[in-house]
Amino acid sequence: MSYTFTILSPTDTPLFTHSFGTSRSGGDGIPRFTSSERALIPFILHSALDIVEDVQWGPSTSAGSAPMYLKHIDKYQNNFISCWITGGNVRFLLLTRPRDEALGLGPSSSGQKGSLAGGRAGLQSSSGMLYSPTNAATEEAVKNFFQDVYESWLKTIMNPFFNVGKGDVVKSPVFRARVAAAAKKYL
């Protein structure tokens, strides 16, 4: 599975982008997007903002306070997008691109037992199911990830030298390291 995490300002400017792969079940944390996919990612994320706004301002699904974690909101082909909104209307978007096998698409989906790289694939399929963005475990993992990132994000923007109002791009290496750590921990 490959991920791209982006933070978008209220005016749709990207403030921070980080791509990584899964670290679960033996993953090495390196994203595996094809070049054409990589070119489309910003478009997909940008277009998902339409849906984000819809969900954000649409009828509330939960009673009382509006949730920050909007869960899985959009999908383009095999790219699934989850969203978290901060109090300042900054959007965290996480794009998930599961491996083809996890979607039941790949050539190994029919005869997964025999595949040479069966270690991981076998493990995945033995857990019983294909990737689903609304799966409780997936949602929980993404939520934890967002929560960690949110915490670091708050600490970053509290820096008096960081000009939040102007929509400064986040350059802090510490923040990047923390996002990477959260990614490694939960995804």
Partner: peptide
């Protein structure tokens, strides 16, 4: 432009 789909539309136009 609440509830618009302009970004989506633009994306698909690029595609």
């Amino acid at each position: 432009r609440m509830g618009s789909r302009l970004r989506k539309a633009a994306f698909f136009a690029v595609l």
